[in-house]
Design a binder for these strands. Structure first.
Length: 427
DNA sequence: CCACCTTTGAAGCCC
DNA sequence: GGGCTTCAAAGGTGG
């Protein structure tokens, strides 16, 4: 992918923005001849095990009492941070990119990537859109799913949304914010951290619009508080078609996210105060922690120095590796499909009542192929910006740096014939 | 507790 | 340059 070639790659996105589709090849076919694509899809579907139905009967009740957070605290911490940053990102983007038809294009060439570190308390258009949407009665047929996938609505509080997390004084719609901001409101943020302003018309707490705040980093402790309320302000694009607000279209790649008091309140229920303090090495050179940065202490590599006893308690006392300590784990930028997945996962989960991510991902993969060019373009463009910003944030970073960080299984068996249909599902 | 599963795409590596 | 591998997210599942 030559996305970064050609003089820095940020001169024009017009060229490479279409590359993904040409690369895919089948995209054009799919558009011109949906029949074949649908036939292929149908072929796939016909062989699928309708796990969703099986699950729905047995797991509907389970969903309410969805399995508690059993993951490692470190991962939860990471996720919490990611989600929080996600929300923040959306908030930021909401201020930056108001309501383009295809937001990917309008902000293609925002030259100043430092704007990525805008900080404000606004709510992203996408999130705000969710607030307006009503969750459709879900038709889990494939075709309906395809249509639904283009509707960035948020489910009726998919089971990803923690029920216990919206405190009474948090806006009731807070959990609707985004597809996966399950950690966004996990608690009761201190009121002083939510400098909301009640909208005189709606009475809904609103945080100042980005234009009303200093959009730039660094976040002062006070400014940080402005991110506290995800329902900051109302969306301007009331009559916009749903598709005009792509799930990821407004996201800014890497938001300003400081592990601050707000964050602390978000994670304090599960993490020790030590943990909520951003590890120094996870800070960007600007002092801005990056969601792609995963502290070794947080990740797998135990750090001996700055870990609280609770951390030690949950992490095996393996002797720390010094070299790894020095290098924070910088995640790969998300590709277009990953961005799409993050946006649509909750929706698919809500629609299909599936729980297993493998099954969800299968559906998402099919839906991804069902997207139109324009819709995919938005994600390709977002991904391109992600990579672009990532390369600017971490000039020396290489995907190779992460090789071996994660113990990967050997996918020795890649048989042509699908061995098990266990994970093949149909929604 | 952690790898696996599953998806697509990007990047790296090897030949 | 083509083919293969790894990793990115996600969370249930099983060892």
């Amino acid at each position: 992918m030559p996305q970064l070639n050609g003089g820095g790659g940020d001169d024009l996105g017009a060229n490479d923005e279409m590359i993904p589709f040409k690369d895919e090849g089948e995209q054009e076919e799919k558009i011109s001849e949906n029949v074949s694509a649908e036939r292929d899809l149908d072929d796939v579907k016909s062989s699928l095990v309708n796990e969703s139905e099986n699950n729905s009967s047995s797991s509907d009740s389970e969903q309410a009492e969805r399995r508690p957070q059993t993951r490692a605290d470190s991962e939860s911490y990471e996720k919490a941070r990611d989600y929080f940053s996600e929300a923040l990102r959306r908030q930021q983007d909401g201020g930056l990119f108001k309501s383009p038809r295809y937001p990917g294009y309008p902000f293609l060439m925002i030259p100043d990537l430092t704007n990525s570190y805008l900080s404000n308390g606004s709510l992203s258009p996408s999130a705000r859109t969710y607030l307006q949407m009503k969750w459709p009665i879900l038709d889990c047929s494939a075709s309906a799913g395809i249509k639904d996938s283009r509707s960035p609505t948020l489910g009726h509080l998919s089971n990803k949304v923690p029920v216990v997390q919206h405190a009474h004084h948090v806006h009731p719609l807070t959990p609707l914010i985004t597809y996966s901001n399950e950690h966004f409101s996990p608690g009761t943020p201190p009121s002083h951290l939510s400098p909301e302003i009640l909208d005189p018309k709606t009475g809904i707490p609103r945080t100042p619009h980005p234009s009303e705040l200093s959009p730039y980093y660094p976040l002062s402790p006070g400014a940080v508080g402005s991110i506290a309320h995800p329902l900051g302000w109302l969306m301007p694009q009331q009559g916009q078609p749903m598709y005009s607000i792509p799930p990821g279209g407004f996201r800014h790649p890497y938001p300003a996210l400081a592990m601050n008091a707000s964050m602390s309140s978000l994670v304090s229920s599960r993490f020790s105060p030590h943990m909520v303090t951003p590890p120094p090495h996870s800070l960007h050179q600007t002092g801005i922690p990056h969601p792609a940065i995963v502290s070794p202490a947080i990740k797998q590599e135990p750090s001996g120095d700055n870990i609280s006893p609770s951390m030690h308690a949950r992490k095996s006392p393996v002797p720390p590796k010094k070299e790894e300590d020095k290098k924070p784990h910088i995640k790969k930028p998300l590709n277009a499909f990953m961005l799409y997945m993050k946006e649509m996962r909750a929706k698919v989960v809500a629609e299909c009542t599936l729980k297993e991510s493998a099954a969800i991902n299968q559906i998402l993969g099919r839906r991804w192929h069902s997207l139109s060019r324009e819709e995919q373009a938005k994600y390709y463009e977002l991904a391109r910006k992600e990579r672009q910003l990532h390369s600017q944030l971490y000039p020396g970073w290489s995907a190779r740096d992460n090789y071996g960080k994660r113990k990967k299984r050997k996918r020795d068996n890649k048989p042509d014939s699908k061995p098990e249909a266990a994970y093949e599902v149909q929604c």
